[in-house]
Amino acid sequence: MNSFDHFTPATLNEALSILSERNGNAAVIAGGTDLLLRMKNHILKPAAVLNVKRIPELRALSFDSNEGLRLGALTTLRDLTRSPLIRDLYPVLASAAGLMASEQIRSLATLGGNLCNASPSADLAPPLIALDAVACLVSLSGERQIPLAEFFTGPGRSVLQKGELLKEIIVPPPQGKTAYLKHSPRAFMDIAIVGAAVRIQQQGGKCQQARIVLGAVAPTPLRVRSVEESLEGQTFTDESIRQAAKISAEACSPISDVRSAAWYRKRMVEVLVRRGLQAVAL
């Protein structure tokens, strides 16, 4: 690792001031499980490291029946798997977090890190986007909110500007049923080669609202809006689910890499979307 200045601000304002003074040359560290790897491998050589773990404003974990769930950026994957609130009201987030890495890494890694690193395979992104989550970003000039579906702009890239921090994620009150399915070559300790989140809200036997969000098969997490729209207003059948799964597979643009071939990822998108819809819609 190259040497760097290390800061541990105690307040959000202090952190934002340091970020602003450093003009983008400070790396934000929370869990550190992604950042330190890149620093050890000399992929990143930040001049300053800003430890945000002592900032109370980033620690929200609360629910309000109108506003929904507030999840601070510092929420760890372990918190997501253990919180009775999340297990009860948003079980898909607890199960998605539980599919990631190991017990040791889940104690360290945070929600904010998983999202801000903007890996196309980030496991928390598809279920949160399916839940219509909103990202709350904060800088010295104030706060702004953006749908999480619009947060990612490419592999490792997001709308986060220099001097800006992800403060928290706001998830609307739970509506319908949500599932996240992950496919990876190994059962544990592996990155998704395909992730698929589906959320279906039905009334009177008809689909009111559908969300289908894919991970690891495009430069960013991908909402398959054409399929969502085709399902809304319809009654689910085996055939309509098969069709939706097939079109979802055609809608994505995976790459071939060391983990999987593109054609295999597409096939698995079809399988996971079908299984997901069968689980929540029938």
């Binding site: 560290i29 190991s102 890494i105």
Partner: peptide
Amino acid sequence: CDSGDCGACTVIADGQPVTSCMMLAADWN
């Protein structure tokens, strides 16, 4: 492995199991 995969460096920090190779000591004051 020095990259958080193998668990040989596991210790318990504030009651939770962690890979100590993936933590800056300065962050854990």
